[in-house]
Design a protein around this nucleic acid. Sequence first.
DNA 1: AACTGGACCA
DNA 2: TGGTCCAGTT
Lengths: 257, 257
Amino acid sequence: MFEAQMQDGKIFKAIIEAIKDLVQDCNLDCSEEEVAIQSMDSAHVSLVAVRLSAGGFSNYRCDRPNSLGINTANMSKILKMLGKDDSITFKAEDESPDNLTMLFEGGKTTIADFDLKLMDIEAEQLGIPDTPYQCTVQMNADEFQRIVRDLQVLGDTCTISCGKEGIRFSVTGNIGNGNILIRSNDEQNEKDRVTITMDEPVELNFALRYLNFFTKATPLSSSVIISMSPDVPVVVEYPIEDFGHIKFYLAPKIEED
Amino acid sequence: MFEAQMQDGKIFKAIIEAIKDLVQDCNLDCSEEEVAIQSMDSAHVSLVAVRLSAGGFSNYRCDRPNSLGINTANMSKILKMLGKDDSITFKAEDESPDNLTMLFEGGKTTIADFDLKLMDIEAEQLGIPDTPYQCTVQMNADEFQRIVRDLQVLGDTCTISCGKEGIRFSVTGNIGNGNILIRSNDEQNEKDRVTITMDEPVELNFALRYLNFFTKATPLSSSVIISMSPDVPVVVEYPIEDFGHIKFYLAPKIEED
DNA sequence: AACTGGACCA
DNA sequence: TGGTCCAGTT
């Protein structure tokens, strides 16, 4: 038996909205410690990893590790029916369940329950090396979203350079070039603070198209954490309060000479 | 001579908006007691019945019963010009009038009047049995609208089950199943109150497409009254304060075996 | 599917 | 008056 209640259901809704453009089908990997999602996007370019630790749920029980294969578009359709302040209770059988049952509870009078048909999804095992990164930047998530959206009008590829003084986003395109520099600072209010932790400067190129997909997770977090090392995928992480995080991985473009 | 003034013209506008997707042409049946509309929808699947009692109008005079055949789309176009707080005064001749004249009066300075061309519409007489129903549920109209809209993503057919404890809306579809249960209650504020009056439980299937058409009448009323008996059409009624009601009838789908 | 404008609600 | 939600549009 798997059963877990999330008080603030819109967190789960936001997660599904954040990944559904990248990932068609994925497993909810439920264990005693967490509900996790790990999946390459449909084009096998980027990777999504979600962690919802058991401690964030108000009730959590998972007798046996289990993978629940969902179609994200269908899940999204059902979550459209989630009320403003509804909680979600997830339920599934232990042995190869056919359905994931979700209870939406809000006002006292209304209870909605939905069965989402599950599917078998082969779990490609994805080794994510947990190595330290050469540069890590924490900044406002809305600002990151705006930068990535804005720069897309100039070109497809964004150069992200991280040094002590700050992080720079640069695009070279037909109509012109652009540079946005975010300076490291120590603002009073956490929202505007920009924190940089680094050993050596790093400069890497990325496809703006994918960075834009990642920023669909912006509603989940006030800040975003960008981690880079030479020649390895960048990590774009949105912490999810009480639960864990959603992380996106994207390999750098190789410099064309 | 027929002449009637409706202080709050947007009630009539809302009625036309509510029925114009179902009914192309219909008669305004004017008598000493009321203005009534009765019509099957174009596909002859459902039935609309409106009653506006003479008492709701601020001036009412109907010398002779008369049927004014209108095209709802054209009526809607004229009503688009109704001002925010305008009253409407309807005027028509007794003997087979060619036009229905409508006066829109709001601020003291502006008066608009429009003549809508009338047409002859054969009045198919529609016997609506006025039998008591086995289950009657009164609930919030907005909530009913939301449920019917939401469930449409899961499938075409909705099972409505009414029992003592509440009313349940269920849909079975390809991507999964859904159940929304509204519990009978005795809320303080009338808006959230759910009242169930019943002899025996009833369970019937309906086309969500039509239930959705009916909810176009939601702006007319804070609550909706759903009445069901086995094997007869459901009645979805929106009371219209001071005037009467708009009722929709829809035959249940026969269980496929 | 994303964006937009419009409507309703707080 | 601003925010949110929904429907229509590209």
